[in-house]
């Protein structure tokens, strides 16, 4: 653990990424209770107030809602969904990918073909169509659908990781001891593939943010009045000349979050891969 911290110290990029991520997590947890405006509070006397005026740090939108409050509230849903999807799709991927790789043969062949077929549709398109068809996305619905869209990719990574240590002596030893398949897969093999798995989860976290923001932007994400960063951008797009802050700040919020996570996940993958 100490070596990780030491390596983190030497990587200013990773520190910056982690710091920004922690700020957003803090904003999501504690932010809303510190705000002076609610995200739904409309103030028709103060429409499109410029940033810094009338106590609105980042200005207000066309309905007089405080942009800063909406961004802070919006961080909650996007972080929650992204965290859940990256965990859920990774767990599903491990279960499916491990089963396929472990048993091999026909199971593996069928698995690979199905994954190839599912990967023939871009995850964003798949999620967009399903969410669009079902309508009225909720946090649960969004999490499940995005996780499903991601699972073919995570399953392939998990399968690859399992194959690297499937034919090792400790696996043979466990098999001879008469351990069950499930025990071998999850108690013997999983801890030894934890590096690639962690790399996958952190990278998946960045993808999830991108995906959820894009779905919100396309109007199939969370429904109003829940503030959603992607939705704020498309809602206010026509105001980009009159009130650019209503579009620009939510965009920058997304940018800062995804870039921060990418910087950190880039570091994680370097550390984990060098170690093996």
């Amino acid at each position: 653990m100490n070596t990780y911290l030491l390596q983190l110290k030497r990587s200013p990029r990773a520190i910056a990424g982690l710091a920004i991520l922690l700020i957003w997590i803090f904003a999501a947890i504690a932010g809303p209770s510190l705000l002076s405006y609610s995200y739904t509070e409309m103030d028709m006397n103060n429409q499109m107030v410029a940033p810094g005026q009338e106590g609105h740090l980042l200005g207000t939108d066309a309905l007089g809602r405080d942009v800063f409050s909406r961004i802070i509230y919006g961080s909650r849903s996007i972080l929650t969904i992204a965290l859940l999807t990256s965990l859920l799709s990774s767990i599903a991927g491990i279960i499916i990918g491990f089963t396929a790789g472990y048993f091999g043969g026909i199971v593996d062949t069928i698995f690979l073909r199905i994954m190839d077929i599912l990967m023939a549709i871009p995850p964003l398109v798949l999620a967009m169509v399903v969410l669009g068809i079902l309508g009225n996305s909720t946090i649960v619905g969004l999490t499940i659908i995005v996780s499903i869209a991601f699972t073919p990719a995570t399953a392939r990574v998990a399968r690859g990781a399992l194959l690297t240590c499937k034919s090792t002596e400790y696996v043979d030893a466990a098999r001879i001891r008469g351990e069950s398949h499930i025990y071998i897969m999850f108690v013997e093999i999983l801890p030894n593939t934890i590096g690639p798995v962690i790399v996958e989860i952190t990278a998946r976290f960045a993808y999830s943010i991108m995906m959820i923001a894009s779905l919100g932007f396309l109007g199939v994400g969370l429904q109003p009045p829940t503030p959603d960063w992607g939705m704020m951008v498309i809602e206010n797009k026509s105001l980009i000349r009159a009130a650019p802050w209503t579009v620009l700040y939510p965009s920058l919020a997304i940018a800062s979050l995804v870039i921060a996570i990418s910087l950190f996940s880039d570091f994680v993958s370097k550390v984990m891969i060098n170690e093996d």
Partner: peptide
């Protein structure tokens, strides 16, 4: 690479 297309588009 990390930016969704609409964010770079807005910028």
């Amino acid at each position: 690479m990390a930016l969704p297309e609409f964010v770079s588009g807005i910028i």
